[in-house]
Design a protein around this nucleic acid. Structure first.
Length: 608
RNA sequence: CGGGGCGUAGCGCAGUCUGGUUAGCGCGCCUGGCUUGGGACCAGGAGGUCAGCAGUUCAAAUCUGCUCGCCCCGACCA
């Protein structure tokens, strides 16, 4: 925590009368006395907040909502945000990335050049300016940074370079929710690396990967790293940095034995390859049609035929580039659209409507099956194991039992097409995958040449050849990080700030500050802590002690100091770490050392 | 975009179904008193275009229509 004691000169703009002023120890924190700052705490939960971090951020006076997905940071929230920003910036600088600042407003032409103008669709805010030019509010900055690189970099001698900024992004989310976790306007750190070759990209990528690890560790987060799909961004290798939290919108699978982790879309499934009949059914039984009136869902069929869902073949009819294709997965599995897209090499994949299904299979929706089906059939790997299975009959209210692969139907291609599920075998070792929820706070991509080719970010190599830059991009949701930290670290009374993010290290409560001796002793204590470089929020309000204690718990600074009349008489102040129930008196003379050791002890609980 | 819900004082809510005094309650806020180690107490007080617009009616927070905003579920997704 040595980095927290930066001084910025004595610029206290509003000295309190009769009390000495103190140097401002951290830029962005304008005042340390409660009576002189704005910390509007709320006793009750706000009506329109639904997750703990959002409730606490509003109740603790960190943020206020302006509109759907729009938040104002009040002084205390801004202090925390600046801390997050500072950690990110320091780790980026340490990794050799260069900070710059690009406009939020961008010409749409750049986005048309990269081909993403339509791809982003309504997620991107667009408008026409007075001159008739279309502009966008940048949801990300690949296009802009690549534009600058193509203008300024033309030789391999100028590479590699990694550029970054910390700046506001706009995304017109379909449904903003969870407070700053999915906001329409948010603070993001975005970095972009440019290399001459893939080997260089691997090095640049590793530097960012390591910097992300360091950043999230310093922020005190419980996080894990998972393999991810690169989606709209392009490229192949991609990692997500996930904060483990119940309310997280992302699903991830992690191995209980090794370090393998992947988000649900990406998680690989291995086929353990046990033929069902080796265990359960010794021989192929004859095919038989059975009437299943009104029974079409897998669950219902399983119940109706008293068969486990895993013995049912689920036949989904998709439209792939407009063509109907049958996708077969086991009844207890789910088809994974991301894997389908990869398999078919196109994003144009959608479930077919009832009319298309009738036309393609000859039967109604809900009763499709592979037997006799003329269209292309692809199957998830696990289907190889099935024997004497149940499928739809392509006929209303009818299923077929004892269906067997190759005897009764054939498959055009097998692939990993399903979502991994809890309990699956780890694709890397003998372990088992478990499902968790996560909040994505960081994402790294090896982009390759997607943008450097479309936007012509090219350089001359040492042989005089023109080559596109090999790019990577790296994002951190800075504002989201705060909410994630609170999701990780709160109790029924309020926040427990990780030390790296805490707006103040110490929350000093004066009990009955109208008592002159308490006021004087508190001021002295406050000054000595300031002089020692410890950030203090001094609750100097004339309020009930209980009110102040509740607020201190809500705000969640690491250490609370309480000074009242009896403490002044005894020459002690009561010290209570936020994560402990009990307080203890420490001699006023030793308070700096005591606070330091308490802070260290507190910090240790956030270290993994 | 589909489904559901909400909008009344700074915050949290009642009142709306069944139209009818001066629109209430808790918290917060202001003044005074008393108090101050876990959300005190007493007295007095300020604060409302009842989301907006239009309509029905002798009379609308309340009934009708439209509009706006917000929240939840789903689809979608850096």
């Amino acid at each position: 925590m040595a980095e927290r004691g930066r001084t910025a000169g004595g610029l206290d703009a509003s000295p309190a009368p009769a009390l000495p002023t103190s140097p401002r120890l951290r830029p962005g924190v304008p005042n340390m006395r409660w009576s002189q700052t704005l910390i509007p705490t709320l006793r009750e939960d706000p009506q329109d907040a639904d997750v703990p971090s959002q409730k606490l951020m509003i109740r603790a006076g960190l943020i206020r909502k302006l509109g759907a997905g729009l938040f104002t940071y009040l002084p205390l929230g801004l202090a925390a945000l600046r801390n997050a920003e500072r950690i990110v910036r320091e780790e980026m600088d340490k990794a050799g990335a260069l900070e710059m600042l690009m406009p939020v407003l961008q010409p749409a032409d750049l986005w048309k050049e990269s081909g993403r103008f339509d791809g982003f669709g309504d997620l991107m805010c667009k408008f026409t300016d007075r001159n008739g030019h279309i502009n966008v509010l940048g949801p990300t900055h690949e296009e802009v940074v690549t534009h600058h690189v193509r203008c300024e970099i033309n030789s391999y001698r100028q590479l590699p370079v990694t550029l970054y900024q910390i700046q506001t992004k706009f995304r017109d989310e379909i449904r903003p929710r969870f407070g700053v976790i999915r906001a329409r306007e948010f603070l993001m750190k975005d970095a972009y690396s440019f290399d001459t070759d893939w080997e260089g990209l691997n090095k640049s990528y590793q530097k960012m990967y390591d910097a992300y690890n360091a950043t999230f560790k310093r922020a005190g987060l419980r996080f894990c790293i998972v393999e991810a799909d690169s989606g709209l961004m392009g490229g192949d290798v991609s990692h997500e940095f996930m904060v483990l939290a119940e309310i997280g919108e992302d699903l991830l699978l992690r191995c209980d034995k090794c370090l393998y982790g992947a988000n649900r879309e990406k998680a690989e499934c291995i086929n353990e390859g046990k033929k069902w009949d080796l265990v359960h059914a010794p021989t192929y039984a004859p095919v038989q049609e059975v009437a299943t009136p009104g029974v079409s869902t897998v669950d219902a069929v399983a119940k109706f035929l008293r068969t486990p869902a895993e013995r049912i073949v689920k036949t989904l009819i998709y439209k792939v580039k407009g063509e109907p294709v049958a996708v077969l997965v086991r009844g207890d599995h789910e088809a994974n659209p991301a894997k389908l897209a990869k398999h078919f090499g196109t994003a144009q994949i959608e479930l077919a409507d009832a009319a298309t299904i009738e036309k393609a299979t000859g039967g109604p929706l809900g009763f499709s099956g592979p037997v006799g089906l003329k269209i292309r059939k692809v199957a998830d790997n696990t289907l190889m194991n099935l024997t004497n299975a149940v499928t739809g009959a392509n006929k209303l209210d009818t299923h077929i039992v004892n269906v067997n692969l190759d005897r009764d139907f054939t498959i055009d291609a097998y692939a990993d097409l399903r979502f991994a599920a809890a309990g699956d075998r780890c694709p890397r070792c003998e372990g088992t995958l478990a499902l968790s929820h996560g909040i994505e706070v960081g994402h790294t991509f090896k982009l390759g040449t997607k943008y450097s080719e479309s936007l012509k970010a090219e350089f001359l190599n040492d042989k005089g050849e023109l080559k596109p830059c090999i790019m990577g991009c790296y994002g951190i949701g800075v504002s989201r990080l705060l909410a994630a930290a609170i999701e990780n670290s709160h109790d029924k009374d309020g926040i427990l700030w990780p030390p790296g993010l805490a707006p103040y290290s110490v929350h000093l409560v004066s009990v009955n500050p109208k008592d002159a001796k308490v006021a004087t002793a508190s001021a002295k204590l406050y000054e000595s802590l300031n002089a020692a470089g410890i950030q203090v929020l001094w609750d100097d309000r004339d309020a009930q002690a209980g009110v102040k204690f509740k607020d201190a718990d809500l705000l969640g600074m690491p250490v609370r100091l309480t000074l009242g009349g009896r403490g002044v008489d005894a020459g002690t102040v009561d010290l209570k770490p936020r994560n402990e129930a009990a307080q203890r008196p420490v001699p006023l003379a030793a308070v700096v050392a005591e606070v330091r050791s308490a802070l260290e002890k507190y910090a240790a609980t956030f270290a993994k």
